[in-house]
Structure formats: structure tokens, C-alpha cells
Write a protein that binds this DNA or RNA. Structure first.
Ligand SMILES: [Zn+2]
Ligand SMILES: [Zn+2]
Ligand SMILES: [Zn+2]
Ligand SMILES: [Zn+2]
Lengths: 163, 163
DNA sequence: GAGTGTAATGTTACATAGTAACATGTCAAC
DNA sequence: GTTGACATGTTACTATGTAACATTACACTC
């Protein structure tokens, strides 16, 4: 199964399974998926896309949660630390993880036009990276593998716009 | 030759060749390595490390250049656009490129303790990334391949510190 | 060698992103 | 019902990055 992110699919299914798995992960670790945290995850799950912390915050505020940056950052950090979301450094944004629980190394395809994000498996990438690091006697702790470009839809739109 | 960045070496040589190559690249493109730009590159070249734009700016200001952020960002952007420096998104910083001119895709090993940065070849990484993108029908324009961890020296220091 | 166009530099002012520190609330355990 | 741990909220601030515009340097023309 390749990433459905950029293609039509039953996204309700994505959301349902991601939430269910999130519950499990959190329970297994003896942590709590509190209202803010859950809502934050739901917001991220609305699209296969990335959202800035301040956009998330705005949504949370609308829902009656706090209005200050730490409210969003704390929830987002919680999700990231527990593998329920990923941070996309390239665009200072966050995206929900589609298959939390599975200990995976992910890479990201980021559409510069629509902020869409697809998560692709990165086991091989990680391995190659580790090999390079070994040669330099460097010990890797975290990796960020991100590609910026155009998703199929936005590529069409750009090509069409020129015509 | 593996990356010398984290090991003792004749760094004057790194600097000299990088500057010479920079001159060539810029001349070949009909651009100008003006004083600010050159000085910015020299500052980045002082170490195999990453510097934030504001740190660079401070140094530039000391040398009599402007004191405002755009001064640094413009010079840095020029260097990045022409392959003379790289931007490290993970830590919002910039690092000099060690072999400009050669059209290369680089990955970076970033020491979280000393901000040291080693550039490693990323042709294979890029290829794997492209393969993943192809499956998702995504067209890549730029990639960021970064690993955070500890360089050999800082790893020793940390291990030693515990003892 | 004055005039003109372009690139580069500089400035002000602002936008966006992220965090430290502390006060308050919640809730389970004892 | 008190304690302790965690979660939420706030204020206030730091850090990073840009838009917009004024000024300067310099090549090129006439
Ligand atoms: Zn979906
Ligand atoms: Zn798109
Ligand atoms: Zn060197
Ligand atoms: Zn180090």
C-alpha cells in the first residue's frame, strides 16, 4: 500500500484508526489522552496536511481551550513525543501520524502549494543514513527526512494554470 | 575520504579551497561575491559548524556591516542559493558548503552538543527518496536530510561526564 | 562626464515561531 | 480532607524571519 495521502480515499477510516491506535498507545504507556490532547490530534487528523502551532492554537481557542501558545505547544509536544504526530521542521509545522504504535522511521513529502503531507516508510533511508554516520563516527539520535515539492493535484493545477 | 569535520585536520586548507571554489562558482554565474557575502562565508567557514542568522549578523555588525536582520539573511540566502552554504532546518542555522560547485545532494550530521556539522554525500539517500516519491506520484524539488546526535568528541565528553 | 538603470546595502517596522516561569485547577491515593 | 502529581492556564518574553522602502555603488550609454 503506497501512501493514500495524495489520492482519494476513505479518510474517515484514517481518522478512526489513528484515534483508536492513539488511545491504545497512550493507555499502554500509562498516560492520558486528555481533552486538549485529543482535540489537537483530531485537528491534525482532519487532513493529510501540516499545520502550524498557531493555527492549531486558534482552533483550540475556538473550542474553548486556552488562547496562549503553550497550550498548543504542550499538546503538540505530547503527541510528538508519543509518536502520535510528527514535526515537520522544513515548514515549522506538525502533522498527525497515520500509524502510531508501530515504531517507524518516517520520511515526509510536503506539498509546497497545499501543505499536504504524505508519510513514507524510511527504514532504508534511515539505514543509509546510519551507514554514513558510522563512517564519521557519529551517533545518530533523531533524523529528519523531508522533501518539498508538489503533490499530483497541485502539479496539475500549476501546469493547468500556465496553459 | 570520509568527512573530516569531526576529526583533526588542516582546516586552513578547507577554508582556502572553499573560498577559491566560491570565487569560481560566483564568477561562472556572472554574480559578485561582495564584501558582506564574502565575509559571511568566511564566518561560516571558521568551523565545521552551524550558526544562526543572528549570530552571523552580530559578527557582521562588528565588522562594520549593517545591524539589521536582512543584512544577514540576504547574504546567507545568496550563499545558499548558489550552493556555497546550506541551511540546516532542524536547528534554524546555516553552515558553509565544503565542496561548492560540484552539484551535490548533501545530508547533514548535526551534533546537538557543539553544533558541529558534517556534510555527507546523499546521492543514494536522494535516490531512495525519489523512489518513494514516485510511488506517491509526488515531484520532489528540494530535500532536507538531517540527523541530530553526538559527534565523537562530544560523545566521549558525555560518557566521561557521567563517570 | 552627466544621465540612467540595476543590483546591492541599509533602515524601520513588523510577522511568525517558540519558551520560561509561575498560578490555578483536577483528581487519585492515602 | 490533605497530599502530591500532573495538567491547564496565564503573562511575559526570546528567537527567527520578512515586507517595504530609502540609499548607495556601479556599469553602461549618450
Ligand atoms: Zn486519509
Ligand atoms: Zn498539493
Ligand atoms: Zn575543515
Ligand atoms: Zn559535538
Amino acid at each position: 500500500m503506497s501512501s493514500p495521502a495524495f489520492h482519494p480515499h476513505d479518510h474517515g477510516h484514517c481518522i478512526a484508526t489513528a484515534l483508536a491506535q492513539a488511545e491504545q498507545v497512550v493507555a499502554a504507556r500509562g498516560l492520558r489522552l486528555t481533552p486538549v490532547r485529543r482535540r489537537t490530534l483530531e485537528i491534525l487528523l482532519e487532513r493529510h496536511g501540516a499545520m502550524g502551532a498557531y493555527d492549531v492554537l486558534e482552533r483550540l481557542a475556538e473550542d474553548g481551550f486556552g488562547h496562549q501558545p503553550p497550550v498548543a505547544y504542550r499538546a503538540l509536544d505530547f503527541l510528538v513525543e508519543n509518536g502520535l504526530a510528527h514535526r515537520i521542521r522544513r515548514i515549522n509545522a506538525f502533522t498527525a501520524c497515520l500509524h502510531p504504535g508501530e515504531d517507524h522511521h518516517a520520511a515526509f513529502l510536503i506539498c509546497r502549494a497545499c501543505n499536504g503531507v504524505a508519510e513514507i516508510p524510511a527504514a532504508r533511508l534511515r539505514a543509509v543514513m546510519e551507514a554514513g554516520a558510522a563512517e564519521a563516527d557519529f551517533s545518530i539520535e533523531r533524523v529528519n527526512l523531508e522533501a518539498l515539492g508538489l503533490c499530483p493535484e497541485c502539479r496539475m493545477a500549476e501546469a493547468g494554470g500556465k496553459a
